[in-house]
């Protein structure tokens, strides 16, 4: 067999293997998060206090989006707990402390999708696992999708509004003065690779 044929055959085998492997592999990201257009915010109430609003500055997201078959899409999101910003150094230090995020021991907050279901032309329901303080619990979120284009590349805007019960993750400090419900507002834009 000529050398060029061997190369071509190898390439075909590799691409076939790639397709098969894609089915088995958990994630093959084809969209990347645009950090400049991503906001991971939270808010929480406490008795006698104004609503506390904050956000996380460091995160990483991997998206495998299949627009034709949304169920095949996968999402992985990782947030650095230390990057929390609640408005002042003193309050940030408290939120990062063992009382709440315990960021030294649990440096990341992770979400990994387990299934994606199309609910309308502009929304999907994502079921996944959220790991916070080392505790993994299922979380279902409704995601609004906004297809855009900046001319050269396709963009997908995602918006999520949900809430979690922090007690489920063992974050019991300050309860019931500090509410158990933590509201999450996540908006992000992904660029096609």
């Amino acid at each position: 067999m000529p050398f060029s044929k061997i190369i071509r055959a190898s390439a075909l085998a590799a691409s076939l293997f790639g397709v098969l492997a894609a089915d088995a592999a958990p994630l093959r990201p084809n969209w990347s998060i645009d950090p400049a257009k991503t906001n991971i915010g939270f808010s929480i109430d406490a008795v006698g206090w104004p609503r506390t609003v904050g956000k996380f500055g460091q995160f990483d997201g991997k998206l495998a989006v299949d627009l034709d078959h949304p169920a095949k899409s996968q999402i992985k999101f990782r947030v650095q707990a230390n990057s929390v910003n609640a408005g002042s150094d003193g309050l940030n230090e408290f939120v990062r402390s063992t009382a709440l995020l315990n960021a030294d021991q649990f440096p990341t907050i992770d979400f990994v999708s387990t299934s994606v279901e199309k609910t309308s032309d502009r929304s999907v329901r994502v079921v996944g696992d959220l790991t916070l303080l080392g505790v993994t619990r299922p979380l279902t979120v409704d995601v609004d999708i906004n297809k855009k284009s900046d001319g050269a590349r396709a963009r997908l805007g995602f918006t999520v509004n949900t809430k979690i019960d922090r007690l489920d993750y063992g974050m019991t400090s300050g309860y019931p003065i500090i509410s158990r419900d933590v509201f999450l507002t996540i908006s992000t834009e992904a660029l096609e690779q």
Binding site: W49, P50, R51, T52, A86, G87, S88, G90, L91
Partner: peptide, 13 residues
């Protein structure tokens, strides 16, 4: 008077 949590937190300290 303070309606911002972080400001209020800092003033408490």
């Amino acid at each position: 008077a303070i309606t911002d949590t972080a400001q209020r937190f800092d003033l408490y300290q």
